[in-house]
């Protein structure tokens, strides 16, 4: 079981969190005309990298904040966690 550092609550076990997928996906702006292809990419297509991955976790049994977690998908090493609005270089 992973041990995830929530920037709001501190380190908590994985069973307090829900996984939320790729954190780098950006929703197209409202009222913008975009092609089927672009929309399709946003809704369905995700990379599944082996190695570093920036992903969303929802601290569902804790502070209910969505956080961003930089995790290695093959070793589970967690490098850093961020608040939802934190700037990531």
């Amino acid at each position: 079981m992973l041990y995830i550092f929530c920037p709001h609550c501190g380190s908590r076990s994985q069973n307090e969190f829900a996984y939320g997928g790729d954190a780098t996906v950006k929703r197209p702006d409202l009222n913008n005309e975009i092609s089927d292809q672009e929309w399709n990419n946003f809704v369905y297509l995700r990379k599944s990298p082996r190695g570093k991955h920036l992903e969303l976790w929802h601290h569902i049994s804790g502070c209910r904040q969505w956080i961003k977690v930089e995790r290695d998908t093959s070793t589970h090493e967690i490098f850093k966690t961020y608040k939802a609005d934190e700037l990531i270089e």
């Binding site: 929703r27 929802h58 209910r64 969505w66 939802a84 609005d85």
Partner: peptide, 11 residues
């Protein structure tokens, strides 16, 4: 609720 929180916090 999770859905609403997602849009309010991230989008």
């Amino acid at each position: 609720l999770s859905h609403l929180e997602y849009y309010l916090q991230l989008v």
